[in-house]
Design a protein around this nucleic acid. Sequence first.
DNA 1: CAGGGATCGT
DNA 2: ACGATCC
Length: 660
Amino acid sequence: MALGDNEGEPPLSDDDIDWTDESADIAASQPADCRDAEGQPQKVILHFDLDCFYAQVEMIRNPALWNLPLAVHQKYFIVTCNYLARELGVTKRMMATEARSKCPELVLLNGEDLTPYREISYKVTELLESFCPLVERLGLDENFVDITELVEKKLKKVPLPSDVSVNGHIYNQQALDTMAPDHHRLALGSHIAAEFRAAVHTQLGLTGCAGIASSKVLAKLVSGTFRPNQQTTLLPESSAQLMCGLIHVRAIPSVGRSTAMRLQALGIHSVVDLQRCPLPTLEKELGGICARRIHCLSLGIDPLPVTPRGPPQSLSDEDSFKKVSTEVEVMQKVKELVSSLLHRLHRDGRVPRTMRLTIKRFSESSQPVSRESRQCPLPTTLGQKIRSGSWDAVTPLVSLAMKLFFRLVDRHMPFHITLISVCFTNLQLCCLGTRGSIVSFFSQGSPVKPKEAPSAGSSGPTCQQGALDTSGNQDVQEASLVASAPLQQRSAPSPPPGVDPSVFWELPEEIQRELRSSAASAPVPDCPGSTASSAPRLGLGQHASREASSPAVLRPPSLALRTLANQTQSLNPSLNSPVHEVPSHVDPQVFVELPTELQGELLAEWKRETRTPPSTPPSTPPSQTLPSPKRGWSRPSKGKKLNPSNRTQVNNLLRYFKPC
DNA sequence: CAGGGATCGT
DNA sequence: ACGATCC
C-alpha cells in the first residue's frame, strides 16, 4: 500500500520513512500505542529455511543414517541430499544413476511418499506459531515469520541500545550502529531468530538457516548467505547490495521462467536492469499488477504481509510413470491414489465438494507436456461416506474418477499417459451429523466460507491477540521459549486432560473434537513441553485440525501418526542413543534396508560388544553438540521389548553380518 | 525437463 | 481449465 510511489531510488526506502523520532518515543516511553494506522514501526521479518529437509527427516527417522552420505530421490532424480553426500559430488537435481556412479557408498532413499515430510513440516510451522501467530508456509521447508511484535515487546524491556549485538552473521559485514533504531530492532530480531532455531533444533532435531530483514524478499534472499545451519541479518544500508548482487532476474522470488523470458525480450537480464526499467515499459509487457510487483521486489520492497494460510485448500496425490496405456492400469492407479487421499481426508476432518483428475500425456521429443484435467462436484451423500472413513467411498470415487478420465481420453483410441493425479478441493467443514454439541460447535460462523485466518488482516493491527499476553514481569526470552500457550489456540488441538493421548489420537476427528469441547473448561495442568489449548474457540476461520497437525510440540508420537507416517524411528531406546556407526564390515546399504527394530537391536548389540563407540561421530551437523534428536519424543522407558522371535532374528542377522 | 506437491491469477 | 510460480 505505502509503496510504489518512490521509484526514483534504489532499495534503501526505509530511509524515506521518517520514523526515527517516533521509534525513539517508543523506546523511551511506551504509552502502549506503538502502532499507528500509517507510520507503523518498521517490520522485522524472519525467513526460516530448513537445511536439506528431506534428508534431515530421513536421518531423524533413522539415526543410523546420521553419518552416511544420504540422498533422497523421487523416481529418477535426486531431490535433496545431506552435506556428506554433497562433499562427494552429489547435487540436487542430479540423476540418481549419476549420483550412484559418482558415489557408490551413497545411501539412496525413495522420497515419493511425502507423508513423513509433511508431518514434520507442520510440526515446524506449529512450533513457530507457538511463539508468534504470523507464520506463512512456503512449501514444506520454508516459513516466514513476522516478528515485529515480538521485537517491539523486547524493545520495551531493553530500550538501551548500548550492549545490543547481532546474533549470527551480518550481511556484507556491515557495522552495526547500535544507536540506529532500525539496527536495534533487527539486532533484537536476530536474537529471536536464534531462539527459534534453537527451539526447532532441540524440540524437533532439525537445523536450518534464518534470514532477518525488513521485508519478505530481503529476508528470504539473505537467509541463504551462510549455510547450513547459520543465520544472517540484513541491515537496511546493505539491501541495495544484496539485490544488485543478484545477477539474474530469476533470482527474485516470483520471477519464474516465463516472466524471465518476457523480461529478456525487453533486454532485461540483471536485477539492476529491472530496477532501472521504466515502469510503463514493464507494465506494457507484463500487465500492471505483475509489473509493479516485480519492480518493487527488484528494489527489495515487498508490500505483501506475512499471511498465515491455515489448513490446505486442497489435498492431492499423484504418481508418474513411463507408460500407462490400459484402462485396468488406470483404474488401479486411481484406486491407489483415492485410497491414500481418503486416509488423509479422514485425518483432516473436512469433506471435499470437488474432485479433479489430471493426466499428462506422453509426447514425443519432449514437447511442452502440459497437464490436462477435468473436475466434477461430489454428491453430498458421498461426503458422508468419506467422513465415516469407511471404505465404502473408494468404489464410487474411483468410478467417478474414471468418468473424468474418459472425458480426457477416448477409450476407443490407444493412449499413453505418464502421470495421473487426483485432487480433492473445495474442502468444507461440513455439518457433523446429529450431535447437538458438535453442531453448535461449528454453526457459529458461516459454514460456507472457511476462508480462514481472521488474525491475518493485511492492513489492520497486526497482532491484536496481544490482549491475552501475560504482561506481567515475564522475561521475554522465557515467555517466548517456554510454550506460550495463549497464542497457541489458533490451530493446534490437544487432548483433553485425563485422556490418554495415545488413545485420543486414534479416535476420529469429530470424536476428538467432542471430547475436547466437553472438557473445555478444565485447565490443563502444565506439564513441561505440552501446550494447553484453551477453550475451543473455533469460530468460522478456526479449523480444528490441520493435516498432520500435532497439538503439542513435545507430544509423544501417537501410534496412529507413527503408523501413518511409516515412521521408522523405533521405540527401542537404543536407537536414540548416539551410536551412529555401523561396523566397517557391514554394508550400509544392506543395513539400512533392514526393518528398523532390527537395526536398533543390531546397533545395541554392536555397542555392547565393542564397549566403545570409539570414534564419537566426527562432526555433527555443523557446530552442534548432541546429535540426539527427540529426547522428548521417545516414549518413557515403557518401550516395547522385542519378543523372543525377533531376538533370534537379530542373532541370525548378526551372524550374517559377522564373518566371525 | 525430471517429482510430488501446493497456491494464485486468468 | 489452464498456466505460472514456489519448494
